[in-house]
Write a protein that binds this DNA or RNA. Structure first.
Lengths: 195, 195
DNA sequence: ATCAATAAACCGACCGGTCGGTATGTAAAG
DNA sequence: CTTTACATACCGACCGGTCGGTTTATTGAT
């Protein structure tokens, strides 16, 4: 039972909450420390900088998504069903804890400006795109989908996911987003199925 | 020729550039003033606060998109073609000037946190959704699309647009985004067309 | 078992600098 | 003389990060 590691994780989780609530720039290190019940010294003992905390949060998040997607895609089910299953886990994967969905936007924004964050995000992102493309290909080969440009189709699915996530962030109460996601993906998939 | 109005617009444009480049939080008022060749006094003469500048930028942007979409949708063409035309103008509409695409993310992020910004964004956003839904309905009634849940379909189109925008922001060089958008929308639309 | 020695973990005052915003002054226009 | 359209100087709050010092845990010799 290592207390230092507990402190580290506690800082990480607290920072995640505050970043999600107020944004990266608007959240001060002092604020994180106070909320975590830890001194500034402890913070800088465990992390070289505020950005470093953010980076670790991002890496953990991306790794979590990747493993979840891998797990689901290895189910022995028809491809269209796998797409629906992936859609169902979309909300839960993006928010590892409650209310963590805003971090999605925070990650994206930082990535589009900070080269370090960008570098951490771009490779997993490209793997996601590749992942969806491969799923579509498998679907075409299995005869579930009609022949089509798999790369564009994978792009469509990814865009759909990203777009839904972003909208649910803007207007969480405006719709039943998990249900809407399922319906949307279903509508696209049905248009692709062999008739 | 009103010089004060020129100054106002100049401040607005300069702020837009800087916000797009470095983000809202990271761009200081002093920085805007210096880049615009104007004193802080001039800035606060024309605007009550930094946030107010942002808000006006947002309103202009939304109004621009709305009129552009209205114009295109009134073309006398089959609905599927109108969707493709809308897709083609997507890149140009989102960036009123060069390099202004990052403002999209900036607007979204602020809207998801600041109630004032949110209020300015949510109504136009809902109109956009309604707009796409109506287009789909027109398409179904005209016999271009097979019967379908128009609301979900409209949601799909909007999600696709938002998702593509966000991705093009993350990896501008990673793909030919206008072409990819056209291909993606085409792929979805084709799946909905009457066969 | 005890205790000195060392390292790890942590504290909080403090630093230079930057922030959004304000107060005051002023030159030109009407 | 008043109003408009600015410019300049300045304010207190806050920022990320540092630093000298203190507490706690671990180790090794006795």
């Amino acid at each position: 039972m290592s207390r230092p590691n507990d402190t580290r994780n506690h800082i990480l989780l607290t920072a995640q909450h505050l970043f999600a609530h107020s944004g990266y720039a608007a959240t001060g290190v002092a604020e994180i420390c106070q909320a975590a019940g830890v001194s500034k010294g402890a913070f800088y003992y465990h992390f070289p900088s505020k950005q470093d905390v953010f980076l670790e949060l991002l890496n953990r998040w991306l790794a979590g998504i990747e493993t979840a997607m891998q797990t689901i895609s290895q189910q022995d089910q028809p491809i269209p069903q796998i797409f629906l299953n992936l859609t169902d886990m979309l909300p839960s994967v993006v928010q590892s804890a409650d209310g963590q969905l805003p971090m999605f936007l925070e990650y994206w924004q930082q990535a589009s400006r900070d080269p370090l964050i960008w570098q951490a995000m771009i490779d997993p992102y490209r793997r996601f795109r590749q992942f969806f493309t491969l799923l579509v290909q498998r679907g075409v080969e299995a005869g579930d989908f009609r022949p089509m440009e798999a790369e564009a189709a994978g792009q469509v699915i990814l865009s759909l996911a990203v777009g839904l996530l972003l909208q649910s962030l803007l207007d969480p109460q405006g719709a039943d987003w998990p249900a809407l996601a399922r319906q949307s993906v279903g509508l696209v998939i049905r248009g692709w199925e062999r008739t």
